[in-house]
C-alpha cells in the first residue's frame, strides 16, 4: 500500500523557489491501477520520481507498505518515457541486468517474463534492432523480474504511434492482471488514462496539486467505443478542461 500525506516539493530556481507539488494526499491500495493526468508542469512526473525514491528532497510523508521511501530500490519498478536499455546488452541480458543468467532461476524467470511481454524469440537481439514498443516491453520485463511491490510508469507509451500504443496498453493490462502489481501510470493522454486506470487522478499545474480523483467503474477488458466509456471520458475531460482554463477555484487535494 502506498500512502502519500501532505507532500510538498519545492525546486530552487534562479528566480526564486518554485512550488512543484503542494499538499498531495493519496492512498493507493495493493494491486490497484491508478493513472495520473494533467497538463505539463503539473508535477505528475515529479510525484512519480519521489515515489520511485529517485528524488528524496521533499516535505511530508511518502510511505510504501508503512515504510518511508528513502531511496530507489527494486521494490519500486520504474519505467521511464524512454526504454533506457543498455545498448551493449542483448534483450535477455538487459532484463537480467545485474543478475546473472547463469543462475537457472533467473534464466527461467527471464524466459517467462519475455513470454509475458510477448518477446520470445528476441532474447539475443540488441536494443537497436527493436522497435520503440518492443524496447519498452523489455524495460517492463526488467522491472518485473525484481518482483516490485509497485510499478511506476512515466508516460511510457508517449513516444509510440497510436496503433502500437493501444496494443501496449492491452499488453500492460494483461501484465497487471497476471502479476497483480500495483500500477502508477502517468500520462497526458485522456483515453489512455480512462482506458487503463481504476482511478484517474487529475492534476493542476502551478503549483502542482491534485484537482480530483475519479473512479472508473468499468470492467476490463474495456471498450473504447462503448457508451459508458465515452461517458466517463467526458467526465474526466470536464475536470481536465477546468484545469486547462487556468486558475480554477482552489479545491485543494483530492483523496
Amino acid at each position: 500500500m502506498l500512502e502519500i500525506e501532505s507532500l510538498n516539493k519545492t525546486f530552487a530556481a534562479p528566480s526564486g523557489p518554485v512550488v512543484a507539488l503542494r499538499d498531495i494526499r493519496l492512498t493507493v491500495g495493493r494491486g490497484e491501477f491508478v493513472t495520473f493526468i494533467g497538463p505539463s508542469g503539473c508535477g505528475k512526473s515529479t510525484l512519480l520520481k519521489i515515489v520511485a525514491g529517485l528524488d528524496t528532497v521533499y516535505e511530508g510523508s511518502v510511505k510504501l507498505n508503512g515504510e518511508r521511501i528513502g531511496g530507489p530500490g527494486i521494490d519500486k519498478g520504474v519505467i521511464f518515457q524512454e526504454p533506457r536499455l543498455f545498448p551493449w546488452l542483448t534483450v535477455e541480458k538487459n532484463v537480467a541486468a545485474n543478475l546473472s543468467l547463469r543462475n537457472p532461476e533467473v534464466r527461467k524467470r527471464v524466459g517467462e517474463l519475455l513470454e509475458l511481454v510477448r518477446l520470445q524469440g528476441f532474447e539475443k537481439a540488441y536494443p537497436r534492432e527493436l522497435s520503440g514498443g518492443m524496447a519498452q516491453r523489455v524495460a517492463i520485463a526488467r522491472a518485473l523480474l525484481r518482483n516490485p511491490d509497485i510499478l511506476l510508469l512515466d508516460e511510457p507509451f508517449g513516444a509510440l504511434d497510436a496503433f502500437t500504443r493501444s496494443h501496449m496498453q492491452e499488453v500492460l493490462l494483461d501484465i497487471w492482471q497476471r502479476s497483480k502489481t500495483t500500477m502508477l501510470f502517468v500520462t497526458h493522454d485522456l483515453d489512455e488514462a480512462v482506458f487503463l486506470g481504476q482511478r484517474v487522478v487529475v492534476m493542476n499545474p502551478r503549483p502542482g496539486h491534485i484537482r480530483s480523483v475519479l473512479d472508473i467503474d468499468l470492467p476490463y477488458p474495456r471498450s473504447r467505443t462503448g457508451a459508458s466509456f465515452q461517458e466517463l471520458r467526458a467526465l474526466v475531460l470536464g475536470e481536465f478542461e477546468k484545469v486547462e482554463k487556468g486558475p480554477a477555484v482552489d479545491v485543494g487535494a483530492g483523496i
Binding site: V78, F80, F86
Partner: peptide
C-alpha cells in the same frame, strides 16, 4: 545519466555500476 538512474533503481552495487555501466 539516464542509465545511471536505471542502475540506481535496479540497486546496482558500486562495483556493478563500474563494470556494467561505466566501463562499457
Amino acid at each position: 545519466r539516464k542509465l545511471h538512474e536505471v542502475t540506481k533503481a535496479l540497486e546496482f552495487s558500486a562495483l556493478q555500476q563500474a563494470t556494467k555501466l561505466i566501463l562499457p
